[in-house]
Design a protein around this nucleic acid. Sequence first.
DNA 1: CCTACCGATCGGTAGG
DNA 2: CCTACCGATCGGTAGG
Lengths: 198, 198
Amino acid sequence: MSPRRSVAEALGTRTAILDRSVAVASTEGLEGLTIGRLALDLGMSKSGVLGHFGSKETLQLAVLDRAAEVFRAEVWEPAQPAQPGLPRLRALCEAWISYLERGVFPGGCFFVAAAHEFDGRKGPVRDAVAALFDAWRERLRKEARRAVKVGDLPAGTDADQLAFELLGVVMALNHAIQLHHDPEAAALARRAVRARLI
Amino acid sequence: MSPRRSVAEALGTRTAILDRSVAVASTEGLEGLTIGRLALDLGMSKSGVLGHFGSKETLQLAVLDRAAEVFRAEVWEPAQPAQPGLPRLRALCEAWISYLERGVFPGGCFFVAAAHEFDGRKGPVRDAVAALFDAWRERLRKEARRAVKVGDLPAGTDADQLAFELLGVVMALNHAIQLHHDPEAAALARRAVRARLI
DNA sequence: CCTACCGATCGGTAGG
DNA sequence: CCTACCGATCGGTAGG
């Protein structure tokens, strides 16, 4: 009945597992993340790791959640102080570009990688990835609509179209950084964003 | 010394292995492609499959090569008849969008997936993927420069910038189709391309 | 949280 | 092209 470790210790272990998992999954992918390797890295047994999550799939969902928190803190929150509409849209894009430029996740954008890994499958992990992208795209659209409403963007600007194109810019940037280690790509991305946001 | 199968038969088997490999790797990834599954699918033994390539890595390189041939036939060749410059650039983008729309590879763009799978690694597969993207981007740039030269695009248009943005558009399209099964995304992509190409 | 296992599957080899 | 293996590793479980 009584736990071998205190609640605080167990929480600390859980956090340590998740932090390591995010780092590994960022470079190896959510499927490339293995319990055995995690256990070795953390100096634990496999069952010790698995005990915190129950199954690999539950671990993957927890990792996705943790990574989404990081993204929120790195991209959404820095843009919150900016005025709603165009200023915030600009701040969002700049934070997004900076997040990729600084390599917040060592393997590049966690979610783009996860999307490619799971888009051909079914199940809760795929659904969670899709829900994240849906939420982010909707957020971009909302901010774009607001920018049109307050007159920062020309009336008749298509918010769907704008969100689609901005997503394309950050995807191209992620690709250029990760595959080509291209240091000039961030400048191209900034110019592309500027051209779209007045 | 004498082969168990004729040269023609061996070539046919090799082709069958590669065709199946391209289909599997398109959905499961180049790393998710396994010799055992391939052998099962083809009614062969594992060593029978491996005998044609020697190692999994060599198979992966051959699969990449085969997929690049398909891409060439689906995207570059249809655009060749178009006039150099803007018309050909437009034809290229349309062929690229159509290739994604028709789902030529069942798992979406083979190369974007491979790029994400291998961008954190070293070795010949990563290098081959990077070389493919380099070549395609250079080809887009070249066509863009030509379009500027013949006056189809405004003087001072940055070919690097244009190639970067067009790549972003097709990446966003690939993502929308594969993860969201979004049937409207192709229209967004076409509008984005049109806005960039006069 | 551990040890000690399970069956399945991985890439690859020996030998024919 | 086959059978028959190899050592390693996979996710997961039993039992404590």
